[in-house]
Design a binder for these strands. Structure first.
Length: 921
RNA sequence: GCCCGGGUGGCGGAACGGGUAGACGCGGGCGACUUAAAAUCGCCUGGCCCUUGGCCAUGCAGGUUCGAAUCCUGCCCCGGGCACCA
């Protein structure tokens, strides 16, 4: 009898051995095909959680599978280490952000090692390390020199609680996406990247194999629209340009609206309206995004007193201002067509402005006086001069005949021109915080900006600084940091803002290639071989942020020439660089989220006295829920929630009562000795996102200690659809425990028989080869749960074979050998241990993946379902190579089939090879 | 409101371009072993009925097809994203 499976002993042993042997070091080898597998790097927040395991261990299994398939696989890991939490910890606990960050990294590195993943730790990159951020800074200077980074004034999102500005992508519903704190709009001068220059290219996903939802989200975020720019003359002799996607409704424009911040407001406003306009502008400037949207879209606005002329029909129309027009989109000014735009309609109704229908729907006469909502559908143009009768469809842009004709009409008369606009804004990368890469720019005495030269990089983040409770960056007050000299030796002021941390994660995949490379962001020789990333895995929450930024970054790097040397290196190795630097990651897969487990709350009997509608409890006893009907008390039921000392208890009828406990309340929990307190009572846990405050987090370290890393890995892969995730189920782990225990016994035990039986061995070989095919195909398409299922099936087959005791040593050894190879990517430690115990050559992870023998995937005979009129009635067994005629005869020979045909001849017989035969009567 | 996903046993989930629905596992039931429990092993496990057989079943209602979880139309739920973008 051999020793039982003891995961904790074997796992650390193999982890040490693999590390000592450098088993997972990836080295350039032009004779082998490469595979760059990348999984999103963690932020070093403190501890690795189960979500990290769920993201990384299946990615590791896929990388290992590719390696066994013969690819030279690079699978690196690092830390996205700049960011606010470190700085907040510094303020709260008086620890330097650097110390906090590196302590966390040290702990998380150990936790990551416990996964048994094939991370190449020689390539580890940490974004807050000067050797890394030196090149983040350098890339900024390249972008600046290439005209892609600029300093500009814009309406930006200022977070008072974080004391910094944020990019549009980082603001959701007027709140900061990470903390949920409100954000205000302010005009500020900041550093930007010209992401908008790439809007069109970013909309092209043709080179990418990315999930549909991510592509849609990015497309929506970029928000391309086709329309026209039209200039309206005004009585103030101040022509105003507007952007519209509906030039076909120009004849229905009955007023204009400018954004309150629009610079021409000043000049079109007439004196009698100036006071009202100024008041409105002031109020709009102070409002947060939330306040603007909180008003239930009730339209507000003020008349400027000025008028414009509609260029298409000469109509005199009033000019208003309103905060429903955004300065940052289009030209910040619109023509209002209330008859065909709901927002304009609402505004016109509120302020009694004219509504003039110019698109006539089929069979219905629109009347501006009586309309109750804007008409947005198709129709024909009317009240539109020569263009009356042109059909307007629901299509957008030139695809709509009305829009198409009107744009041509405008261009012929020089009244306007076709224009494409995007919702996407330039990326605001300045942050008024300390813990980030300094922006390597100097403000000269003459007011111009210059870059810190490459030799002087990195601009080091000064360490001896004092943190203020408010969060203001200490860099601003650090005179010896600020005061410096420019290239000419004149005194200059250093930029004290740092860069958005999304900059670091936009290019980290390149630093991994050579994290110590001293003369560039990456070694072109490494890049020439490894780029681009073949498979990228991680959470879908980054769809519009990180994943859009990194695409922009790669294109920008390409355009400022960062990849030129890499391209030359590729050509030296006969690899064409054509198109290889257009996109960072070719294939993307998103895993879902693991949610908290549902748990019943304790069932309690509470007695005490009622006060109002709640109970002051003298005694609370936890009972078996099944006994509840037999017990009586003042309140009997399940604890739904606990807030401090107040329990919310729901009785059988669903009615809930607040039960208040005090120091004298006697609490009895069977199984917990001594005096119990209210904190030991368990409340109901709903399925929701895991968080410490909800008490529903699953700690992977504890699971690894109890079951071993392989079990945790396999369970995460087996229990969920990886792309979907779902609620944790602590009971399910036992299925994996049983599987691995039995695999251990099968592989360490003797073969079932001394002498083999041909038939039994043949049957087993078929099971093995079917398993090879299923596991391969599953891992190929990231279907980890079916890969584990196939391996469990093989375990069942092997169990059956052992019981039958008809398989000889040779066939058995071959089956076990293949089983271990197939298990290796998913559960690397136990596979290695069993491999070694069976005396096979180290390491299993360097062996080739088995291939399924097609001859063994099909038997001599095959079972076919027989349907009569599409309903399954019987099953027949025929020779695999039986022709249609033989199948027909066999089907007709079935008594069950004959009964259902009721003696009639079938009109038609459909034979689906390998599947079924359907007799239609 | 608009745009994406998705609704399959008690539960997690299978079912490659329409072809035997429910693989694999959890949970549950019965039995074996055991003084007992756990562990382990064996069998059963979508529902219903007139039970060597049959009927109904993939959110609901239709449709296309010899055949639909899969395709089409309409509706209902759930999850996510965007949200005065002119």
């Amino acid at each position: 009898m051999s020793a039982p499976y003891a995961p904790n002993e074997i796992e650390s042993k193999w982890q040490r051995r693999w590390e000592a042997d450098g088993l997972y070091r990836a080295r350039v080898d032009w004779d082998r095909p490469k595979h760059y597998a990348l999984t999103m790097l963690p932020y070093p927040s403190g501890d690795l959680h189960i979500g990290h395991w769920f993201a990384m261990t299946p990615s590791d299994a896929r990388a290992r599978y590719m390696r066994m398939q013969g690819f030279n696989v690079l699978f690196p890991m690092g830390f996205d280490a700049f960011g606010l939490p470190a700085e907040n910890a510094a303020i709260a606990r008086n620890i330097h952000p650097k110390e906090w960050t590196y302590d966390n990294i040290e702990r998380m590195r150990q936790q990551l090692r416990s996964m048994g993943a094939m991370f190449d730790w020689d390539r580890e990159a940490i974004s807050c390390d000067p050797s890394f951020y030196r090149w983040t800074e350098w890339l900024f200077t390249k972008f600046f020199e290439g005209g892609l980074a600029y300093r500009g004034e814009a309406t930006v999102n200022w977070s008072p609680s974080l004391q910094t500005v944020l990019a549009n992508e980082q603001v959701i519903d007027g709140k900061d996406e990470r903390t949920g704190q409100p954000v205000v709009q302010q005009q500020m001068t900041q550093w930007f990247f010209q992401t908008t220059r790439y809007a069109e290219e970013l909309l092209d996903f043709s080179k990418l194999e990315w999930p549909d939802p991510v592509r849609t989200m990015q497309s929506n975020w970029i928000g391309r629209s086709e329309g026209a720019l039209v200039t309206f003359a005004t009585e103030a002799d101040e022509p105003i340009e507007i952007y519209t996607t509906r030039p076909d409704t120009l004849w229905g424009a009955t007023f204009m609206v400018l954004a309150p911040e629009h610079e021409q407001v000043e000049r079109v406003t007439r004196d009698e309206q100036r006071a009202a306009i100024d008041a409105y502008r002031e109020q709009a400037a102070g409002a947060t995004e939330i306040e603007r949207s909180n008003e239930q879209r009730e339209k507000t606005g003020v008349f400027t007193g000025g008028h414009a002329v509609n260029p298409v029909n000469g109509a005199r129309i009033p000019i208003w201002i309103s905060d429903y027009v955004m300065l940052g989109y289009g030209t910040g000014a619109i023509m209002a067509v209330p008859a065909h735009d709901q927002r304009d309609f609402d505004f016109a109704r509120k302020f009694g402005l004219e509504i003039r229908p110019v698109i006539q729907p089929e069979g219905e006469a629109l009347d501006g006086e009586t309309m109750t909502c804007a008409h947005l559908g198709p129709g024909r143009m009317r009240n539109s001069g020569d263009l009356d009768g042109t059909p307007a469809t629901e299509a957008r842009g030139r695809a709509n005949p009305a829009i198409d004709r009107v744009i041509d009409w405008l261009e012929e008369r020089k009244l306007g021109r076709e224009s494409v606009r995007y919702r996407l804004r330039d990326w605001l990368i300045s942050r008024q915080r300390y813990w980030g890469a300094p922006i390597p720019m100097l403000l000269r005495g003459d007011g111009g900006y210059e870059v810190v030269p490459s030799e002087a990089l990195p601009v080091l983040l000064p360490e001896g600084v004092e943190f203020m409770p408010g969060g203001q960056s200490p860099l601003k007050r650090l005179e010896n940091f600020r005061q410096t000299t420019d290239a000419a030796g004149n005194s200059a002021e250093r930029e004290t803002d740092t860069m958005d941390t999304f900059m670091c994660s936009s290019w980290y995949q390149y630093r991994y290639l050579s994290p110590d490379f001293p003369s560039g962001p990456f070694d072109p020789e490494e890049a020439a071989y490894w780029l681009p990333v073949d498979v990228y895995t991680g959470g879908a929450e980054h769809a519009a942020l990180h994943l859009l930024y990194t695409r922009f970054f790669t294109k920008a790097m390409r355009d400022v020439g960062v990849f030129e040397e890499t391209a030359r290196a590729m050509q030296r190795h006969d690899r064409s660089p054509q198109g290889l630097f257009d996109e960072p990651m070719l294939h993307l897969r998103n895993q879902g989220d693991i949610l908290g487990e549902e748990r019943r709350g304790d069932f309690v009997v509470a007695t005490g006295r009622h006060k109002g509608n709640h109970l002051l409890a003298d005694r609370i006893e936890v009972i078996d829920a099944a006994l509840a009907p037999e017990r009586s008390g003042d309140v009997v039921g399940e604890i739904l929630r606990r807030t401090e000392n107040v329990l919310l208890v729901a009785d059988r009828s669903g009615q809930s009562t607040a039960v208040e406990t005090g120091p004298h309340t006697q609490i009895e929990i069977p199984g917990i000795e001594g005096k119990n307190n209210v904190g030991q009572l368990r409340h109901h846990l709903e399925i929701q996102r895991m968080s410490k405050s909800k008490g529903n987090v699953v700690n992977p370290d504890a699971l690894v200690a109890e079951y071993g890393a392989d079990t945790v890995r396999a369970y995460l892969m087996f229990a969920f659809d990886w792309e979907k995730g779902g609620p944790w189920d602590s009971q399910g782990m036992m299925g994996i425990v049983r599987w691995l225990n039995e695999a251990w016994e099968l592989a360490t035990g003797p073969s079932p028989s001394e002498v083999g039986d041909r038939d039994a061995e043949d049957r087993l070989a078929r099971c093995v080869h079917r398993c090879i095919a299923r596991v391969s195909e599953s891992l190929e398409r990231f279907s980890f749960n079916t890969a584990v299922a196939a391996l469990m099936s093989l375990r069942n087959d092997l169990r059956g074979a052992r019981r039958e005791a008809a398989v000889g040593a040779e066939a058995w050894n071959e089956a076990i050998r293949t089983l271990l190879l197939l298990m290796a990517p998913l559960v690397p430690h136990i596979a290695e241990e069993l491999w070694s115990r069976r005396g096979l050559e180290y390491s299993i992870h360097q062996r080739r993946w088995p291939t399924a023998d097609p001859a063994l995937l099909v038997g001599d005979t095959i079972k076919l379902a027989v349907q009569v009129n599409g309903k399954r009635r019987d099953e027949i067994e025929v020779a695999t190579d039986a022709d249609e005629d033989a199948i027909r005869r066999a089907a007709l020979a079935s008594p069950k089939v004959q009964r259902h045909l009721k003696g009639r001849e079938p009109k038609k017989i459909i034979v689906v090879p390998g599947r079924l035969v359907n007799l239609v009567g």
